[in-house]
Every structure is written in structure tokens, then in C-alpha cells.
């Protein structure tokens, strides 16, 4: 125990405060985005309301981020777009977490042919070019934001399953698992109550990664026209729609772009921090 606590302390020396501050900033930023996503009333104008009399324009006092070609307020659209930016990835993450964890744990803890079947499926899925599959499926099904969300959810399951299986395999040979086996604990209890809590740090960290990945992928699909319906306030779609107006109103592209990058980065950093804290707790126990 001695050795472990020493190592933990040493690994964090000097960086402890900095990583805490970073995590705090990321958290604050994400909190603001969440607040925007939950309250469309915060938008100063109707995000969908075209105003052709104004038309395309740079930032002004009344339109802080300017307007797009249809005279829609960029600020309002960015704010309302936060909802699409968070909701879709959240669902993707939940789907991949639930199914990925279940498959990964079953494969890791049961082993044998169950493991083989699950892992060959995972191999197959990972061999597919994800974005291409998404484009084909969405094209066939007629597209739309929710179809994109569903496809991404399915595509991320094998990633999660593989990581969780690895983490579970690491736990299986540990004496506490063997002790539970000799005590006659049924395998499903062993999986759910013994192994899973000990891989939960990985589960959480992986979910943060999945969220960031889903956010970027969804925006990418929207940019390509396979995601959000035309006209909807969506960051990816906004970049696509306004990229021709880059010089007339740079804010119309830069604002959604920056928000996208910042959100994804913050989610990743926060995920790192949470993982570090969780695994530290696990180690010192």
C-alpha cells in the first residue's frame, strides 16, 4: 500500500493545482453551454426568423455576431444550436455506453466462445469505414438529425465494448475476483457487482471521449448535409451554410467553429481529469 500511495503522490506533484484549474475552467465553460442549450429564451432573436431586409452583415450593436445571408441573427443561432450540439452526442454516448459496457463486460468476464463472437463482431464493425457507412445509411434512410444520431450510436458501441473488455480482462485474474469465484458468486453478480465498479473509471473516461467524438462526427455529418435539416440552427450546418460568406461576416463561421472546438476540447480535458481522480481513488483503496 505504501508503494502505491507514494507513486500516486509523485505522479501528481506540481501538476495537481494546474490540472484542477483546467478542469474547473472546462467545467465552467460546459456549464454555460448547457445553460444555453436548456434555455432557448436566452437568444435575443428568433433563430429561424429570416430578415431579408437586413441580409448578410458583419457584427453590429444590435447583432453582436452579425447576420447570415438570410438576415438571421448568428448569435441566436449559435445559442439555439447548443441544444443540437449537446443532445445528439449525449444520446450517442448513452447508447454506446450502455451497449458497449454490456457487451464488453460479458465478453471479458465470460470468455470462451461468447468472447470470440462479440469480439469478431467488434472487429467487423471497426473494419468498416465509419463515416462512409453513416453517409450510405443516412442516404438510404432519407437522412435527418436523429437518423445520424442513431447511426453514430451503433458505430461507437464496438469502441466502447473493446475498451471495457480490456479493462475487465485486467480485473479477472485479480485475487478478489478469484475469491468471489471460489465463494460461489454467480457470474452475473461477479460481473455487475465486483468487476464493473472497478472498471467504472474507464467507463466514465471512455464516455467523455465518445461524447467529444460524437459531437465532432455529428457536426461533420451536418456539414456534409447528412445531419441536421437545412435551415436548422446547428453548428456544423452553420459552418457549411456560411462558408461562402467568410469575408462578409467571418463571425458566422468562426463562432460555431470555435464553439465546436472548445466544447470538444473541454469535454476531453474534463474526461481526463475525472479519470485521473477516479483511478486515483481506486488505487488508494
Amino acid at each position: 500500500m505504501n508503494g502505491v500511495s507514494e507513486r500516486t503522490a509523485s505522479g501528481r506533484h506540481g501538476t495537481a493545482n494546474r490540472s484542477d484549474v483546467t478542469a474547473g475552467l472546462c467545467f465552467a465553460f460546459l456549464a454555460v453551454i448547457c445553460a444555453l442549450a436548456l434555455g432557448p429564451s436566452m437568444a435575443p432573436y428568433d433563430a429561424m426568423g429570416a430578415n431579408l431586409t437586413i441580409g448578410l452583415g458583419p457584427p453590429t450593436e444590435s447583432h453582436w455576431l452579425g447576420t447570415d445571408a438570410l438576415g438571421r441573427d448568428i448569435l441566436s443561432r449559435v445559442i439555439v444550436g447548443a441544444r443540437a450540439a449537446l443532445l445528439g452526442p449525449l444520446i450517442v454516448t448513452l447508447v454506446s455506453m450502455v451497449f458497449g459496457n454490456a457487451l464488453g463486460l460479458i465478453a471479458g468476464c465470460r470468455g470462451g466462445w461468447v468472447d470470440s463472437v462479440v469480439m469478431r463482431w467488434v472487429d467487423l464493425m471497426l473494419a468498416l469505414p465509419g463515416l462512409l457507412v453513416a453517409v450510405v445509411v443516412i442516404g438510404a434512410l432519407g437522412g435527418g438529425y436523429w437518423v445520424a444520431v442513431a447511426v453514430l450510436g451503433v458505430l461507437l458501441v464496438p469502441f466502447d465494448a473493446r475498451v471495457i473488455r480490456g479493462a475487465a480482462l485486467e480485473q479477472i485474474p485479480r485475487p478478489y475476483v478469484e475469491a468471489a469465484r471460489t465463494l460461489g458468486v454467480p457470474w452475473w453478480r461477479l460481473t455487475l457487482f465486483h468487476v464493473w465498479p472497478n472498471v467504472s473509471a474507464v467507463t466514465v473516461a471512455n464516455s467523455f471521449l465518445a461524447f467529444a467524438m460524437a459531437l465532432v462526427s455529428l457536426s461533420g455529418l451536418s456539414f456534409l448535409g447528412f445531419g441536421a435539416d437545412a435551415g436548422q440552427p446547428d453548428w456544423g450546418l452553420m459552418i457549411a451554410e456560411n462558408r461562402t460568406n467568410l469575408f462578409e461576416n467571418p463571425a458566422s463561421v468562426v463562432a460555431p467553429g470555435c464553439l465546436l472546438i472548445l466544447t470538444a476540447t473541454c469535454v476531453n480535458l474534463l474526461g481526463d481529469w475525472v479519470y485521473q481522480r477516479l483511478s486515483e481513488r481506486g488505487l488508494s483503496r
Binding site: 500500500m1 485475487p175 478478489y176 475469491a179 468471489a180 471460489t182 465498479p197 472497478n198 481506486g282 483503496r285
Partner: peptide, 13 residues
């Protein structure tokens, strides 16, 4: 069975 290493034979969580 009682295992050798008491630090890893109990589920930490």
C-alpha cells in the same frame, strides 16, 4: 481459500 495478498483479495470498491 485465503489468498496471499490481502491488498488485492478484497474488492476495493
Amino acid at each position: 481459500m485465503v489468498f496471499q495478498d490481502p491488498y488485492s483479495s478484497l474488492n476495493p470498491m
